[in-house]
């Protein structure tokens, strides 16, 4: 039995990509030391010219990644803190994402941005605990949130090979997940959801680390209801076909999403269900509150994130 951790899976995806394609390079703060857990050993193996320690200039090095991508490289940008995404929103939303259209298809920007430890890290307070994947999905940037080590490997591999900018959220709550891996690690297509557990009464759409919470709750409720756990894996473009197919069987929907409620990812899932499906009960979502800022104290930090009890209640509510 080989237990593979989420962080190790990402590290392996980066190593395999660097090995396979000389155009792949990594820009990030402290990537040589591997501080964020993604890049240990890579600079020693591939050199400081490909695994590049950059100064604390997120805007410039993200845009430098765009420039390098325009000249044929496939840069991976590591941002240690999810809130740094706010700092580089201009570079990603207004530059990287728009180049292909604005140039009439002359340019492509194969840039991957990875955020190891997105969402709450327990005790890192307001400016280190966000989960702004909805913002990137909203502007149309390919947005990924793998829940398991094999999906982390597979989606990061696909992101690096993709010809468009991609932002990959590696939730802090999933970084400790280990998986018994027997099959070879392979790329996972962008835009394909995964059913982790089949069910017939209710579909729980769970994002990122909450997939594991959803699976635990589904197991716990096994005597009461048959719960399907659907992991979108890619938040944008959303695998609407998989969602519609699942809801066609269950007719009931709960979304559990560790991001802000208003205009959030869960809202879009509910909108798709409302437009494209005939539900048997009003759908429910379990999210952070509107406009949440996570407070420091652990009890307060936890109080604003979706928990198992809320999910149980929501499932029971749609089953009534």
């Amino acid at each position: 039995m080989t237990l593979l951790s989420y962080a190790k899976a990402m590290n392996r995806a980066l190593a395999d990509a660097l090995e396979a394609d000389p155009a792949v390079c990594v820009f990030g703060e402290d990537v040589g030391a591997g501080l964020a857990g993604l890049t240990p050993g890579l600079q020693q193996r591939f050199g400081a010219g490909r695994v590049v320690d950059v100064p604390l200039s997120e805007q410039a090095f993200t845009s430098a990644g765009i420039g390098a991508a325009l000249n044929g490289m496939r840069p991976v940008i590591e941002l240690q803190i999810p809130s740094l995404l706010f700092l580089v929103f201009e570079q990603l939303a207004n530059q990287a994402h728009k180049f292909s259209l604005m140039t009439g298809g002359q340019a492509r920007v194969p840039l991957t941005v990875v955020v190891p430890g997105s969402g709450s890290r327990s005790g890192w307070a307001g400016q280190h605990s966000d989960h702004p994947y909805g913002l990137f999905a909203h502007v149309g940037i390919k947005t990924l949130a793998p829940a398991t080590p094999t999906d982390a490997y597979g989606l990061l591999s696909s992101a690096i090979r993709d010809d468009d900018p991609v932002v990959l959220f590696a939730p802090a709550g999933a970084l400790g997940v280990r998986e018994d891996v027997t099959a070879p690690l392979v790329p996972v297509p962008i835009g394909a959801a995964r059913v982790h557990r089949a069910g017939s009464d209710v579909t729980v759409v769970a994002v990122g680390h909450l997939v594991h919470q959803a699976l635990a709750v589904a197991e716990e409720l096994a005597g009461e209801a048959s719960v399907e756990v659907l992991d979108p894996r890619t938040l944008y473009p959303l695998d609407r076909a998989a969602l519609v197919e699942s809801l066609g069987r269950t007719g009931r929907l709960v979304v559990v999403d560790d991001s802000n409620r208003f205009a959030g990812f869960a809202a879009e899932v509910l909108a798709v269900a409302a437009e494209e499906c005939r539900l048997l009960a009003p759908p429910r979502r379990v999210t952070r509150p509107d406009g949440a800022v996570l407070p420091f104290a652990l009890a307060l930090d936890r109080a604003l994130q979706p928990d198992a009890e809320q999910l149980r209640d929501a499932i029971r509510a749609v089953l009534k």
Partner: peptide, 15 residues
């Protein structure tokens, strides 16, 4: 906005 893009493009060519 063009300046950091130029730096990255130059870095890639140099590499």
């Amino acid at each position: 906005a063009g300046a950091p893009i130029a730096v990255g493009a130059a870095w890639a060519a140099q590499r």
